[in-house]
Nucleic acid binder design. Structure first.
Lengths: 233, 233
DNA sequence: CGATCCATTGACTTGCTTCAACCAGAGTGG
DNA sequence: CCACTCTGGTTGAAGCAAGTCAATGGATCG
């Protein structure tokens, strides 16, 4: 039995395409790695020598302009795939936002394995297509939405992905309305293409209007889901 | 011999993964279709019943907010793939910017064919990964760049894609510095997340600074490629 | 109990948008 | 052939949303 069989994302990650024999082979070329919050897995611009599956935690994909402005171009959650198989340098760095566990492969090994397992490539394709859709939706947000709409959209997506992706929301409350942010204010700003001050002001505005509550820096309670949807534009 | 053998993008589109027997089979389920500039191929939000390859012309992928703001989330050139195989509704419309010719397939047919031809799926995966990279680079532009940087970046990408993608630039000039825009000012604004006025002002600024020239509405001459790169930030 | 790190808040500035007028080229018809 | 209009683009002036700069607040941790 491979350690993959015990993997919590076994049935949600691309590995779900494999039977146990194949999984054993994949297991042989991969290894798990733990990352602390803030630690880099891949640096921007290096030729990407590894790919990975997220087992636990949240990581950001980010690019920077030469003069230091940062834009977070993606956020990955458990069962998501990281990296750029089949050639090419990764245009963005990958950094853990929370403590995280990932299952890493050398890119060469993974490429070869994938070519021999069409079912795996198919899963990867589906996942990549989905990610492309999500990314394009994000472009509408970046290009055309106001600060208020951006933050509301962000919170809604976060709720969905934190629950959907299997990181159960950390509350017993039925409507899972309280979420723990894996982001600092600065990181939220970098996702939304805003400054930290603007993010902060929008947070307090939503709070004053009774749409959300802010029990602590890293927690948000959704008080009025409907209004939040309306705010998202 | 299938009509695919005569196709101008035969060796650049995903079809390059197929031998002539397979190509014949693919040919049997597809058909070419001509589009006039402005014509829609896929509407936003419909469940996407077709996929396609671009043979000739330029098309935009765009989304709208409820209140009518538009954001162009992608632009496709000859040999590019259009659509969302394997389920899911397309979150964006596909509209021809120039007169165009595409090779369309019913999504169901294409899905089935793809599953039987891993080499095709592999090509599609590579293409999708590339598109995802490009889209993420665009996010940096939308989120963090100024109007001037946006326009300069836009022109540079356009030059690259118009030549690279095989639509030879329409001039005999060696350094292919003159390009014909497949976009109106409004469409450029919708790509860059700006207003038409801001785009216009940036155009005249670049012109006044001697970086470009504007022989006509739809033409741009790159006079100083280096300065343009610098302007792109 | 300071020191440090984020986040919030306020005052001011600015880059982009908005609103509105004007302009140029292409097509139409008297 | 010239006025007429239509469409898309440019220019100007004014307003505003978000950015910048700077001070304050509140946790957390030696």
């Amino acid at each position: 039995m491979s350690s993959c069989d015990l993997c919590v994302v076994r049935n949600r990650a691309i590995c779900a395409a494999l039977d146990s024999k194949e999984l054993l082979a994949l297991n042989a070329i991969g290894r798990t790695r733990s990352l602390q919050a803030g630690e880099s897995l891949i640096w921007e611009g290096e030729d990407s020598v590894l790919v990975a599956n997220v087992i636990d935690g949240v990581l950001k994909l980010s690019t920077n302009t030469e003069d230091g402005r940062e834009q977070i171009v993606g956020v990955v959650y458990p069962s998501d795939f990281i990296g750029r198989p089949f050639g090419g340098t990764s245009g963005h760095g990958v950094i853990a936002l929370t403590d995280a566990k990932v299952c890493v492969f050398s890119r060469g090994d993974f490429d070869a394995f994938a070519r021999d397992h069409p079912a795996l490539e198919h899963k990867l394709l589906e996942r990549t297509l989905g990610e492309l859709d999500r990314t394009r939706r994000w472009m509408l947000l970046l290009g055309r939405k106001s600060a208020g709409e951006k933050l509301a959209s962000f919170l809604l997506e976060l709720v969905e992905r934190l629950s959907g992706a299997g990181c159960r929301p950390d509350t017993a409350d039925p409507s899972r309305r309280i979420i723990t942010l894996p982001f600092s204010r600065q990181q939220i700003a970098d996702v939304l293409g805003l400054t930290i001050e603007t993010v902060s002001r929008q947070f307090t505005r939503l709070k004053n209007e009774g749409v959300i509550d802010l029990p602590s820096r890293r927690e948000v309670t959704i008080l009025d889901h409907e209004r939040l949807v309306a705010e998202a534009g």
